[in-house]
Amino acid sequence: MTRQLSTIFIVNVVFALALSGPALAECTEAMELRLGEWFVEAEQAARDCLERRPENAEAWAELARSLAVQGRLAEAVEAVDQALVEHPHSGDYTLLLARLWYWQGEHERAIQTLSSLPVGWSDTHDVVVLRREIDLALAAPPDLLASKSYFLVQVGYLAASERPEGWHFRHALGLGVTQRLLAEVNFEGIRRGFGQARFTDFMVGGASEYRFDAGYRMRAGGAYTLNPRFSPLWNAYVEPGFVFEGGLELGLRFWRIEFEQAGINVLNPGVVKYLGPWLFDARYYLGIESGQSLRHSVLGRTGYFFHDDLHVYLGAGLANHADYLEGRQISHEYGLIGLSGIEFGFSQRLHMLVDYQYRHEAASERVLGQHRITAGLRTRF
């Protein structure tokens, strides 16, 4: 996925960039303004310099740096390309171009650019550090919500044996409150058939995630059902976790699902491992209810990223009484579940999601098969 670093982070990194070549006197103003964090003024000073001396490679490079700290990375690439036209063998300008590709998530282009560095540059400190950052980025799973703010609309169709058809919808708004905190509010509706009757439940909920230093993260969320007929009255969870270098994430969810007549506690450890371009996700659910036997279920999913804007997955699970993909009344003795889905990006901001889910459940010598297909759009802002 294309990843634009925050302006503050880019500022800190760009400060470390060494100036190359003989910076002409008329262009030192742009550098001084940039180092003083007057980025718009630094951009204008660099452009003024280029009006007088369009062949000044350092002015093009300084323009690229000023654009980069404003988050205008594509324009910065064009500027540093001009610097390399004037000085094609400059190690500093080549390294700057590689950094710009890396900040845009174009890791292969960054690696290719580094391979064109002049002799003697490959073992320098800045190049070694950048190569290490690229290696870590390639080992980490793609950030499917890189912009941190989004709006999601999903609509689904339900078909089950011996039951009338139903539908499902979900709307969600996610906001990047800070660089570390993501919050979501959502509204969901499900209509299901029971015998010849149909009932509809509406739920309002929310979720959040906060990422601490050193890889620690905390998730929490819940939902409340308005006048429930078959859904829980409310449910809530907390999930501490840790993200390791190399694309490994561990989490442990503590979940309470409360129905009008009874409730159940669910302990849910999970592990996610990214082995680019493959993503593996495994979860175990232990249901604990007073006076009842323990309930177990397992779920595994495998995803594949063809490129930044195309992701597919397949999954399967096995459970007794409940699979806990959603909070609902426990009504079967055992169940099998199959999952599949695709996410496709029309653009960086607009993605389409299509999911299919099949449940095979057995209860009291009756077998129920249920199909659900859901389609939706997610836009980022």
Rank of each mutant, 00 (worst) to 15 (best):
V14T: 07
F15D: 14
A18P: 05
W38D: 13
E43L: 05
A45E: 06
C49L: 04
L50C: 03
P54G: 00
W60H: 15
W60R: 01
G71Q: 04
E75A: 08
A76F: 08
D81W: 06
Q82H: 15
H87A: 15
P88A: 06
H89K: 13
D92F: 10
W101P: 00
W101V: 03
Q104S: 11
Q112C: 10
T113R: 12
P118V: 06
V119G: 01
E133G: 01
L136T: 04
L136W: 06
A139I: 05
A139R: 09
L145W: 15
F151P: 01
V177A: 11
V185N: 01
G189L: 02
D201Y: 01
F202T: 04
Y216C: 05
M218N: 07
R219L: 13
R229C: 04
S231L: 14
P232L: 02
E249A: 15
R253K: 15
E258Y: 00
F280L: 15
L286A: 10
G291F: 04
Q292G: 01
R295H: 09
A316T: 10
G317T: 05
H321I: 06
L325K: 07
E326Q: 10
G327L: 03
Q329C: 03
G335F: 02
G338N: 06
L339W: 02
F344I: 11
Q348G: 09
Q348S: 13
R349N: 12
L350W: 12
H351P: 04
Y358S: 01
H360Q: 04
A375V: 11
G376M: 02
T379Y: 14
R380I: 08
